[in-house]
Design a protein around this nucleic acid. Structure first.
Lengths: 342, 342
DNA sequence: ATCGGTTCTGAAAACGCTTACAAACAGGCG
DNA sequence: CGCCTGTTTGTAAGCGTTTTCAGAACCGAT
């Protein structure tokens, strides 16, 4: 049995050493040629690159980051939920940009459970990722402690109200809520209500509800009628509408903490023969695709979800480049979309 | 300046060495106590665990996998899109189970672009993950080559038609399409159509369309009228309906490659004053939450999305345990849901 | 030629952990 | 009480890179 034949079955991986041998250079040169091409003479660089390509060499990010004592080419992203289109779109946008910088995305979701968020943060931090992205600014003490020990950039997104730990990319949910209230005031609706999904667990929805109530009080002069439903699925929208109308039959307009709820309410209104917006105005939040297609179209708030994804990715790349300058807060804007439902 | 004071500012990380010192044992014992508790005497184990907890020691998965020459505690998952609720739900379900086994999820999406899938597979494979999960069974030659070099389990999901590379978890999209056609036949509809989004890029939607046409031909005896729209958003559903009715005004029923399209068509029908299902029957695929709440409710096919997520995670865990036995194909079932729209 | 000053290149020491191997120890037996 | 077995612990050799440091090679200028 020759030496060539008894290759270990386990590691089929082509290592840098082999590239070095084939190219007739040392390990160090291969590393440099691949990592910092400008520090190697052109002749060698070509030889190395060619050998690497021929052998199908794929560098090991694991070994690389251990050796470099540097961060892993991994970005940890934690969102409350993956099924929520807002976050899904943000993720897609981030991934596209990060991918081009050879950064992979590690994602976790916690279902609006901050204790679970803490566990994920701890696990992610162990990887010494290149950056950590969280949703919102409310976290457990443990999360904050874990994050303060971390050396990589930490970005909080989708919120602007509150104290950032490090970087912040988002918009003001409170202002978005206020805008909804102002919108109703401008339309001249007198008796208005707000239906929020699980406000206790979702600080951003809570901020929007508060902003809404605030603006209603200021502009209309009556207190907003607040109802909480215990889920954010479409059926809960109909239930919210039912509860509002039962408790305050004279309600003229309802804002919801999300488009999904609002659409559910719209369907329920259709079933009840309530005309929207003539009898009852409906207003959402999120500007999901569907909002533009219901009958009538759903008036809503368009949060800058795609922009957040893009901005977070850009911000990470920028911070990975030049350590220092540049603002650590990116303030984005939402917009009010009037489509006819309210 | 004492030695304690000149701690390096860079690596604040608590290393195993420190735990060993505090517990008064060797490095190896710490590793064993944490990794294979049963191989260490109870007294030492307790001391080590206690010391680790007190110091806040978090093991480095990077160093760990390099040393173990084993796979990284990472599962790479590649889906066409994150904004598609099916896949989002599958991912959530997977993540929940994998998390409990301390496996993190690396996710990538390719927008139905198989060349991009190949790039992601290559990048993921470099990590020597514990498992790789792809969507569907159609891949580029390059993807297949890259995957065949990989030592970890490779799972293809959301499909059952076709040759698996390794493991397969899903259902037959062709059968789902056939079921839709059969459903129309049973309802006695004569002239039926199918609206598919970007069938060229989505092999599973294509398989459903084929299955549908097949069943229609068999059961109804007329060829199905097939229309392709160039997007899978809600607006494309209305466009599809418009095109079908323009080309074949006598169409009695339309099936869609996705619920989103079907809902869009439903809205368009409402706008046109077409009664559903009296004038025109509509049938979707996906059983999104919304399908149960439209007026009328959307008849559709419920694919086992959650089950796929669960089964994939379970399957990975099982294959990581006992290398060998156990079927490598998990066949799941969809169901037809009749809600009134068609 | 010789020299100082640049490039380039290679040897070798990490990076933080796992594990094969060997040593130490404890217990049971004749 | 020695010998053997079985268990527990420690030593040290990696895992695949990066990077520091120093040496080699080359350059033009003396």
């Amino acid at each position: 049995m020759t030496e060539a034949e008894q290759a270990r079955p386990a590691s089929r991986r082509v290592r840098m050493e082999e590239v070095a041998r084939v190219a007739g250079v040392s390990l160090a040169t291969v590393s440099r040629a691949l990592r910092h091409p400008e520090t190697v003479s052109e002749a060698l660089r070509d030889r190395v690159v060619e050998a690497a390509a021929r052998l199908g060499y794929v560098p090991s990010p694991v070994a690389g980051s251990l050796a470099g004592a540097r961060s892993t080419p991994l970005v940890g992203v934690i969102v409350p939920s993956l099924t929520n289109s807002f976050f899904a779109r943000t993720l897609e946008r981030m991934a596209a940009t990060l991918e081009s910088a050879d950064l992979q995305m590690m994602v976790g979701h916690h279902d609006y459970d901050l204790a679970r968020e803490e566990r994920i943060v701890t696990a992610f931090a162990g990887w010494t990722p290149s950056a950590l992205v969280l949703t919102g600014v409310s976290h457990t003490r443990g999360t904050i402690r874990a994050l303060s020990d971390v050396t990589c950039p930490v970005i909080e997104m989708w919120d602007l109200d509150g104290q950032p730990m490090d970087s912040l990319v988002g918009f003001s949910n409170r202002a978005a809520g206020r805008a909804a209230g102002r919108h109703f005031a401008e339309k001249g609706y007198g008796e208005v209500a707000y239906v929020g999904a699980i406000l206790d667990a979702d600080p951003r929805a809570r901020a929007r509800a508060d902003g809404f109530a605030e603006a209603v009080q200021e502009r209309i002069g009556t207190p907003a009628r607040i109802v909480t439903v215990d889920g954010r699925e479409i059926g809960h929208g109909g239930a919210g509408l039912a509860e509002v109308l039962e408790r305050w039959p004279d309600t003229r307009a309802i804002a919801f903490s999300g488009d999904v709820l609002a659409v559910g309410a719209l369907f329920e209104a259709q079933r009840r023969g309530i005309r929207v917006p003539e009898d009852l105005a409906l207003f959402g939040y999120g500007d999901l695709n569907i909002a533009a297609h219901t009958n009538p179209g759903l008036s809503t708030i368009h949060p800058p979800g795609d922009e957040i994804g893009q901005a977070v990715a850009d911000h990470i790349l920028a911070r990975l480049e030049d350590t220092g300058s540049g603002s650590r807060t990116v303030a984005l804007d939402f917009s009010v979309i009037d489509r006819g439902s309210g």
